[in-house]
Design a protein around this nucleic acid. Structure first.
Lengths: 163, 163
DNA sequence: GTCGATGCAAACGTTTTGCACACTG
DNA sequence: CAGTGTGCAAAACGTTTGCATCGAC
């Protein structure tokens, strides 16, 4: 995968895998290249893993304190429409955002909140069956699959209520 | 279907499959048998499918207008602790509640919101793999699996953005 | 009479929106 | 200069909580 970055400011195909490429995409779709957008994209490319809008806002605000969280939400929405980022719901609580390129499934423990990033193949069987039985096309990225992690299972409290 | 209700007030084993049985369970756990609880349980046993707290409140209020939605939430919580009801998240928006006896998985269309009630076996393969690969015990009931239903897929708009 | 349950209003955390102003192209 | 993006404040949404009162046992 040769990623030639000799001519950094010219080679701006609308490639959502770079900050400037994503901005080019935005521009192509009639949007403007603003500093808020660039700051947010920089943060998204720097941090790894899942982050709530609030966390992203905090990170952005280290560099540009006046960028408001509503701007973060609006920009995340737009970047999601353009396919640059995706959001996931990892249980109760706020949604988390990450670059679409790193999309994957999630297993989240209902007890301790631990998150396992699961390769999309984990869902291959489910996807196949859902497709053939129900004509349903599974998107394993948007909502996490809940359950209990091994640690909580060994700690071994309430599996079945009542009893 | 022999459902002998000759001695309606006596045969109250703590059987969560009847209104009075569930109330017996509540009492056994130190709770009181109140009319709010009975109304809510009656509604839960009468309606079928998934219902939000607000829908359940509206239904209860047809018979007892003063029962407040906070009471509905508190009672749903308690009934869930006792294993009588479960709640599920079927995508964005409010949680839905139904009797634990009818627990099942859900496939929910991200586009039109259509809900498919999927038998738990649909998740058997995923559960097995998650268990062996990650030591993770999948609970297929709590959060729906999102995706696209066949109708929306044929209608065939945006599957991949940009392109 | 004790203690759990209820109604109400108010708070909560997350996200969205209306508006006037600022900036990009 | 047209029109998109922004900051701010306020609303929206689903849910939870504090408190005084009420009701079950």
């Amino acid at each position: 995968m040769s990623t030639p970055h000799d001519q950094p400011a010219v080679d701006l195909a609308e490639d959502p895998n770079t900050v400037e490429g994503a901005l080019a995409l935005v521009r192509k779709h009639g949007g403007r290249v603003t500093s808020s957008r660039r700051f947010l994209l920089r943060v998204l490319f720097e941090v790894e893993g899942h982050h709530t809008a609030e966390e992203l806002a905090t990170a952005v605000q280290l560099q540009a304190p006046d960028i408001h969280i509503s701007t973060i939400y609006r920009n995340l929405d737009e970047l999601e429409r353009l396919g640059v980022v995706v959001h996931s719901h990892l249980g109760h609580g706020p949604a988390t955002y990450h670059l679409a390129a790193g999309a994957h499934g999630h297993l989240v423990c209902e007890e301790c909140g631990a998150t396992i990033e699961a390769p999309t193949e984990l869902f291959a069987g489910l996807s196949r069956t859902a497709r053939s039985r129900f004509g349903f096309d599974v998107n394993p990225h948007h909502f996490a699959v809940l359950g209990r992690c091994s640690a909580c299972r060994s700690a071994g409290t309430h599996t079945t209520p009542t009893a």
